[in-house]
Design a binder for these strands. Structure first.
Lengths: 201, 201, 201, 201
DNA sequence: AATGAATGAGCCTTCATTCAT
DNA sequence: CATGAATGAAGGCTCATTCAT
């Protein structure tokens, strides 16, 4: 019976992985439960055995995605990283999940709140490391200093903006691969200069 | 004769305005032609007398929106404005159309290309003034200078990010009203410091 | 006021002619009242001023068509015509109205009964001449003779069949022009031989 | 598993049969997918589970019809049949499917090309046997002989004409049953006499 | 547990007809 | 009278979800 359980778990996992791929390829809105079933080689009904509701599929997928990317980011975000290192790691991590992440950002407004939660989780992770890096790198946080949450939001915003307009900045390719370096350089320059002027410590 | 034409135009306008409102309230994806008809106090069929296709409603609405906001921005963007003035005017303009603009940004990926066109148009307008302001304010554009397109995209990205996450930053209210000042201050500080260090001219 | 009346009549006539053309071109089923209005350069409402119902347009059109073709056939069907002459005149007459006549035959089942009436009327006309011609040409009508109504129906059937399958027998062209001669020759031969054997008088 | 498949097939078949009946009764144009669903005791959606498109229902129905009638004709068309036998068998076969066949002929011009294909198929079948029968019965095909395709088209045309005007020739009844004998006698006489005179062999 | 056939609410769109101007 | 804007009843089709097998 353990075999049964294992098989079920395997089916569930397959559905999630297939859904994750389809969501990335066609977007959440244009991915039907029937398509997922077909791609996962299970019956349409099976989908609803594992996930009572379409929303549940989504939640499971996004959770799976969340864990994967969190793990990956954890690995990438080394201790004692510089600000640039943090951003670079973040980019590297996102690039590995770009299609899905991109859809997530683009269609966020139409998705259950869990989508937001996962994004927040990912960002907390990076944000935390960024905070440490900034503290290390730029001594104190005096009054004139830039608030970390804005620095971070500015960075996230930039990435999301480029992802949302990927067909404008890198049609048919990975925006993050194409523009990541430029964004990184730009944003680091911006931050660094601001800080160095504010806190030459 | 003129009366009829005027009334028709009025109906058409009413449909567009109603649609603009509904789009802003419920989003594009969740606004049906039947709802628009109901809200506009016309029969469902009337909608298709004025707009052959659902897409056409959208296009007309977005064009109407585009003209309105362009006009408004044109008025707000004074000559000889400082960088801060440009950003402030931009914010002020957007605040007046926030619900619709917010949906436009959030659901962009699911909308016809005309949505992007309008956004680009709006941004070109602001971008142009920003370019001039930067040039005036920060002398030259030497190698170490920040590329304007990045400065601008960074700003747009920030605003869009806050709009997309308005329920996080200002639940039930206007994000731009709530966070606009902070964003403005932050971004100006960032830009100014970077420039002043780079080009103390 | 006679001018008014005349103008009205003229409009009515224009609508009918336009409808006749459109019916011939696109078929009855696929010709909308709006199209007719547009093609006739009148408002959509005007159509219903002259014709209370779509059906009434059709009836008027078919009556107009009926008179025209009846007149024409009357002219073509000379006295003392041979059987072949009658058939030839019939063909010649139909060719002049082929598009409309063809649609009439093809879509007859979906049209008001008036369509049938007109077809019957046309056919009575030809049938009458055919009867006379046969009597003249083949002496008596003894028991072994072919019944005229069958001879005639056979001929009509043949023509209608070729009209209904015009895209098979003469794609993009006039079937009657292309195949008329062959049909004529064949049918005359058939009739003649049958009669000459039956009644060598 | 087999049960499900069988039930599905049964539903599909029921839909097809119901549609076939409705098409025969009310015509293709006036039979809606909702009506078919109702008559087949399935939900409207079920129709589209089995047939993606209204056209697909039609095609399936006409294919089903095609096979049935082809099989029946094959059975009826004996070897060594006389010309009269072939015509009689043809009539007998058609009578069994008269309502549907009649609609098919009447509304052909508004139907997908598959309608024509099926008609052609049926006719090829009969035409082939007719050709053989004629050859057997009337020795040679000299120059004066009647071309088979015209003989056949004449026959088909006659039947179609009577079907199309069934309410004229046999209101509320089967035209083929009512007039079939007469048509058969007439056409055989016509053919026979023509041939016997041409080729008295 | 898995299957997959069936469901039905909901959406966009068409078009003959009406009626205020 | 003529106009043409407005009407509303249908119709085809989609898709998440249910349930008998």
């Amino acid at each position: 019976m353990a075999i049964r359980k294992q098989q079920k778990e395997e089916t569930r996992t397959r559905i999630i992985n297939v859904a994750l791929t389809l969501y990335g390829e066609n977007g959440f809105v244009h991915t039907t439960t029937a398509e997922i079933a077909r791609a996962a080689n299970v019956s349409h009904g099976t989908i609803f055995v594992h996930f009572p509701t379409q929303k549940d599929i989504f939640i499971s997928v996004i959770n799976a995605f969340g864990s994967q990317i969190a793990t990956r980011l954890h690995d990438l975000l080394a201790e004692n990283a510089s600000v640039r290192d943090v951003f670079a790691a973040h980019l590297k991590g996102l690039i590995e999940f770009e299609p899905f992440y991109s859809r997530l950002v683009s269609e966020q407004s139409l998705l259950p709140l869990e989508a937001r939660d996962t994004l927040v989780m990912i960002q907390s992770c990076v944000s935390f490391h960024l905070g440490q890096a900034i503290e290390r790198q730029f001594c104190a946080q005096d009054d004139r200093a830039l608030p970390i949450h804005l620095i971070f939001n500015g960075w996230i915003a930039l990435i999301h903006y480029y992802l949302a307009n990927h067909d404008l900045f890198a049609p048919g390719e990975s925006v993050l691969k194409n523009c990541g370096k430029e964004l990184l350089a730009y944003y680091c320059q911006l931050i660094t200069k601001s800080f160095s002027q504010a806190n030459p410590c």
